[in-house]
Design a protein around this nucleic acid. Structure first.
Length: 296
DNA sequence: GGTAGACCTGGACGC
DNA sequence: GCGTCCAGGTCTACC
């Protein structure tokens, strides 16, 4: 079935898809020539593949299966969250226009970070980006989805990201062996168990209006979530006052301002300190010299 | 509060 | 084909 979804003015689906690596991870799939599809879990045993593409009047949504009104509402709610349809960046854009390294951002509609269907999925994926290569993250996520995800009715190979309950049912040892999560398996297992049992309320974190430092403390209390992962998750929640400093960030800042000399976290922080509540967005969408060098 | 070492996987490299 | 080294954040123990 097909229908249209309203998008904010100056919205760019391409900008959301390309905002970070999430679109390369299962159960997302980048559509050619443009657009995005994802398998969304609707209940413990029902999943549906949803495709979205951009039109002049908004976003065209299509699903392989016919949905009831509740299911359709659920899909719309998920898409609104995933694609940042409720977000706006006017204040950031005003500041970005005066910075040559960011002036393309307002013009091209950058700012929204692609989110997963649930915050649980985002937290797990973020843990799986730590202390590994991007290829490793892709591999771990793919195995998790293929082994524990719910398949769509039409295609056994199309699966949603596993629910907390499904992952909680697997032992940490099984997760470690079957998915290559390594030492991260107990972290994912504990998170899944906590969410499934109700002792960890990720929805409350997602919807919280707590000040960012307090929200960050809650995220840091999750096993496997350190300063880098917490900052990444805060960005996904629309909070940009902490920088996700990893080894890549050190390389970027080193090339940009220090002639390739080694730098630490402090140098990265000080480079973006004046961006205040927008510092992570300024960092993320900065027109880095290192990226220009690499793209030739 | 700061720091060292362990954690785990897979890719690169040398033999 | 095998062994070794290294990269990648977080946790724990220790000072």
């Amino acid at each position: 079935m097909k229908w249209m979804l309203k998008a904010p003015s100056s919205y760019s689906l391409d900008a959301v898809v390309q905002s970070h690596g999430w679109s390369q991870l299962d159960p997302f799939q980048i559509l050619e020539p443009s657009g995005l599809s994802c398998v969304i879990g609707l209940s413990s045993d029902v999943a549906v593949r949803v495709s979205v593409s951009e039109r002049k009047r908004g976003l065209a949504v299509s699903t392989a299966a016919r949905l009831g009104s509740r299911q359709r509402a659920r899909v719309e709610e998920s898409l609104s969250w995933m694609l940042g349809l409720d977000q706006e960046f006017r204040t950031f854009y005003r500041a970005a226009r005066d910075e040559p390294k960011l002036s393309r951002i307002p013009k091209e509609g950058w700012g929204r970070m692609l989110r997963s269907a649930t915050f649980f999925e985002d937290v797990v994926k973020t843990i799986l980006t730590t202390n590994t290569t991007w290829a490793g993250t892709i591999r771990m996520v793919s195995r998790l989805v293929n082994l524990y995800g719910v398949a769509t009715a039409g295609d056994d190979h199309l699966k949603a990201f596993p629910s907390p309950e499904r992952l909680a049912a697997a032992s940490p040892d099984e997760l470690r062996k079957e998915t290559g999560l390594g030492y991260r398996a107990p972290y994912v297992s504990a998170l899944a168990e906590g969410v499934a049992s109700g002792s960890i309320d990720l929805d409350a974190i997602r919807e919280s209006d707590l000040p960012t430092p307090e929200l960050r403390k809650l995220l840091l209390s999750l096993k496997g979530v350190g300063p880098y992962a917490a900052a990444t998750l805060l960005m996904l929640l629309g909070r940009y006052d902490y920088l996700p400093v990893d080894s890549w960030a050190l390389k970027l800042v080193s090339t940009e301002w220090y002639d390739g000399e080694p730098v630490g976290k402090e140098e990265v922080e000080s480079a973006f300190a004046h961006w205040g509540e927008w510092k992570a967005l300024a960092y993320w969408f900065w027109d880095w010299e290192l990226l220009k060098e690499r793209s030739g």
